[in-house]
Design a binder for these strands. Structure first.
Length: 189
DNA sequence: ACATGGATGCTT
DNA sequence: AGCATCCATGTC
């Protein structure tokens, strides 16, 4: 079985697809972070915390963990492990592929830099219309799913510490952020 | 550098 | 019940 750090790296270059009433949007995953359960003080499941929000993290891998943050934005994660092992990969940035105009409309995107359409966890959820209704969705299904991309992009993986977890005492410097080197759609730290 | 924003999960 | 927190973003 793959550990979550391997899954995180594996997901880079894969295509995330969301189909809503024949409106297709998709993008290549170019930036991710791993959140590794009970021992990770940055994880929502730190110390085995079970709440209505984290429930899905304890189910079998391959499902969507979506949560709202700051009352404003959603974040999309992939549950990665077997039952009762709450580990996830947060998707932080996409390289838009299909339905760019739909995404721009959802984001009220005007004269902005095209690299800023989906270069952040909240931005990509808005662009892909991922919200609470996607909580727990099977990512091997046919509505919101991840697949091997037909388009291939360079897969040189860079590593860094995770973003915006200064509160996470011991875990804040863990090198669990992975992104594609030189890819312009990666978020700006 | 700062306001925004509300669900979430703590503590009483 | 009340309250501090937060895996951002956009605009200042």
């Amino acid at each position: 079985m793959r550990n979550t750090l391997d899954v995180a790296k594996y997901l880079l270059g894969k295509e995330l697809v969301h189909i809503i009433e024949k409106q297709i949007t998709s993008g290549l995953i170019v930036e991710v972070e791993a959140y590794i359960g009970p021992g990770d003080s940055a994880s929502h499941a730190y110390q085995g915390k079970r709440t209505p929000r984290t429930r899905i993290q304890y189910e079998i891998g391959g499902k969507a963990y979506v949560y709202q943050i700051y009352g404003l934005h959603y974040c999309f994660n992939v549950v990665t492990q077997k039952e009762d092992l709450p580990e996830v990969v947060l998707v932080r940035a996409l390289q838009p592929l299909q339905g760019v105009e739909i995404m721009e409309k959802r984001r009220s995107f005007k004269n902005n830099n095209r690299f800023e359409l989906t270069n952040g966890p909240g931005k990509l959820c808005q662009a892909m219309a991922i919200d609470k209704s996607c909580y727990g969705v099977d990512l091997c299904g046919s509505k919101l799913y991840i697949r091997e991309a037909k388009v291939k992009i360079p897969k040189h993986i860079a590593v860094s510490k995770r973003i915006n977890i200064e509160y996470a005492r011991n875990a804040k410097n863990f090198p669990w952020r992975f992104y594609l080197k030189n890819n312009l759609y990666v978020s700006k730290p």
